[in-house]
Design a protein around this nucleic acid. Sequence first.
DNA 1: ATACATTATGCTAACGTTAGCACGAAGGGT
DNA 2: ACCCTTCGTGCTAACGTTAGCATAATGTAT
Lengths: 344, 344
Amino acid sequence: MITTRDIAERLGISVSTVGRALADDPRISEKTKFRVRQAASEMGYVGNRAARMMRGASSNVVALVIPDIRNTFYSTIAHELSKNMEAEGFQLMLSESDDDRMVELRHLRELFANRVAGVIIVPTARPHNESVKLLRAVPHLQLLRRHPSLGSQWFGVDDHEALRQATAHLVALGHTRIAYLGGPEELPTGAERLRGFRSALREGGLPDDAGRAELGPPSSVDHGREAVRRLLQEPDAPTALVLGSIQLTLGVLKELSEQGVEVPRELSVVGFGDEPGFSWWGPGLTTIGLPIQEMATGCALWLMRRLKTRPSNDGPYTSVSPGSLILRGSTAPGRKHRPRPTEP
Amino acid sequence: MITTRDIAERLGISVSTVGRALADDPRISEKTKFRVRQAASEMGYVGNRAARMMRGASSNVVALVIPDIRNTFYSTIAHELSKNMEAEGFQLMLSESDDDRMVELRHLRELFANRVAGVIIVPTARPHNESVKLLRAVPHLQLLRRHPSLGSQWFGVDDHEALRQATAHLVALGHTRIAYLGGPEELPTGAERLRGFRSALREGGLPDDAGRAELGPPSSVDHGREAVRRLLQEPDAPTALVLGSIQLTLGVLKELSEQGVEVPRELSVVGFGDEPGFSWWGPGLTTIGLPIQEMATGCALWLMRRLKTRPSNDGPYTSVSPGSLILRGSTAPGRKHRPRPTEP
DNA sequence: ATACATTATGCTAACGTTAGCACGAAGGGT
DNA sequence: ACCCTTCGTGCTAACGTTAGCATAATGTAT
C-alpha cells in the first residue's frame, strides 16, 4: 500500500508537505500541490483512515443493527440510510442480530472495536447489559423498537394507533370475533400493537372474549402459516383477522391461498405493512401502510446532523410516524358465524 | 475511550503486559492475566482495531457493493454473507451503487480508505477505470454480473441457460409470438439472458421475427409496467412473455393485475426469480427459480477461506449455478393470435 | 545592508497497539 | 559460589497521519 512517505520520497519532499498538499492546505504552493496530487494519483495513493483516526479524527462509518435484512421493512431502511449517508461521505456497516441478544452483543463489540461513529439499532427484546454500556459511548438511535435502557433517542411508528385503526375498521364492519396475530409481547412493538388491538375492541364496546391474540416469535413466516391453520380449524373460529408483522402477513396470505379460503366472505383480513404482492393477493389486501421510508430518511438526517455538530446536544428525542389504513378488498361486513366454504 | 495505557496505569504495570495479557500470551502469569481482564472489563475497555491495523493487522471488514438492497436478490445475498461472516468474526460494509459507476467509484474509494479486507461486488455495466485499479489491491469477487476487467473470480447463475429453459417452455407450448423484457444488453447478465432467449427460439425452429426483445434500465419496476402496457396495445401483440429480472416481473404482475388481463388465457407469462407473492399471483406465476441463497453462501465461504490463508492463491475461479423452472399456472398452450378479453 | 514580514517547507511528537529485544528474579545443576 | 535456563515483565520502536513549532527562502521597507 502506498503511503504519504512513498510520495514524499519520490518527489524529494517531506511527508508533512505531502500531507498538507493532499489536505489542500493554503500554506502549500500551487505548484507543489499539483506535483503531489499528480504523483498520488499515478501511484494509486489512498489515504489510510485508520491512521487518521489515531490522530483523533472520527470514523465515517455508521452501523445499522437490525434483526434481518430480508425483511422489507429493514431493507427499505438500509436503503434510505445508505443513500442519505453516501451524500455526506459516510459508509454503512450492516449487522444482523437475528433477534438474538448474544449475536447483537457480538456485533456491537466488533462495531466498537472498529470505532463506528454512530449506531442505528432495532434492538432485541432485552439487550445485554454490555450492549447497553457499549452504546452509551456513541451517538445512537433506536428505530421502530424502543428499549428504555438505550436512551430516549428514538424514531418509530405509532404501533398502538396503527393496530387500533386496523382493528377499529373490523369492529365498524360488525365483526365480533376478531383474532390478532402478532409478535411477542416482550418486544416493545409487540406490546404496543397488542394494546392497540385491545383498545379498539374496548372502544367498540365489544366484550372481553371478542378478541383473541396469538403471539409468537418475531418475524416468523412459518408461525403465521401455522397459526392461521390452527385458527380456522377451531369450532368457533374468528370471522376476522388482524396481523401484527410483515412476516406474519406473508405467511398468512400464503396459507390462505393454499387452503383456498375465500376472503373476505369466509374471513376478513387486515395485513401489516405493504408489499408489492399485497395488492394482487386475492381480492387485494387491506393493510396498514407505514411510512418506513420517511422514517428512515428522518433517522439518517438526524444522525448526520448529530455527527457533524460536535457538541453533545442529546436532548431526549422522539419522532413518531402515524400509519394509515390502505383499503382494498380483503374485509367485508361481519356475520355471527364464519360461513362454510362454498361447494365447488 | 479507555486504552491499554489506562489499564496499565491503574494496575501499576506496563502497557506491554496489558497487551499481552489481553492477547492471552503464555508468557504472562495467570494471576496478572486475571487482574488485567478484570480491570479491562470493569473499565469497559474495547480494543482499537485502527491501532491494531497500523501494526500490520488486516481489517475484519468485507464490503458488499450492490445496486440496491431492496431487491430481494441482493438482500438475500447480504443476509447469507452477513450470517456466514459473523461466525468468522467479520463485519459487513454495505454500499449501494444504484447502478451508477460514479457512485460505485465513490463507494470504493471510501471502502479502500477504510482498508476493507475484501470486496464482493455486483459491478455496474462498465466500472470506472479507477474502480478497477482499486479492486486489484484486495481479494475481490464478482457476483452475478461479471466484467472482464475485474478479474476472473466470479460467482453467478447460468443466465443463458435460465432464459433458454424459460423460453423453451413457451416454445414447447406452441407459442410463436414471444416477447422478452429484460435489462440492458450492456450488462453482462442482460446480454446472457437475451442470448438464452434467442437460443431457445432458434432451437425451437421459430423464425427470426417470432421473438422480440424489449430492453430497458436495470431493476426498474416502472419500466416493467410501462413496457407490458405498450406490448398489449399493439395490433399483433405477443401471446407469451418472458421476464429477465425480478423488478421487471414485479412491475409486470402489478400491471397485468390492474388491467385485468386473463393469464394464461390471453397471455402466458414466465417470471424471473421467486418472491413470496409470485405463488399467489393470479393463477400462480411460472417462473425461473435461482439458487441465490446457495450462491451467496458459496461466495461467503470462498472469501472467508481466501482471507484466512495469506498466500495469494488467486487462480481463476468461476462457479455457475443452474436455475430451475418452477411450473405454476401462468402458462398455457399458444394460439395463433392473442384472444380478446372475455366480456364481463 | 539590516530588520522584518511573509511564504513555503521540514522536523518532531503523538495517537493505541504490538513485536523484538533486554532485563531482573528465581531455580536447578555443577 | 558459579553458570544456565526459565519465567515474568518492561522498554522501545514502528505502523501512517497530522498539528505545532521551527526553519529556510523570499520579498519589502527602512
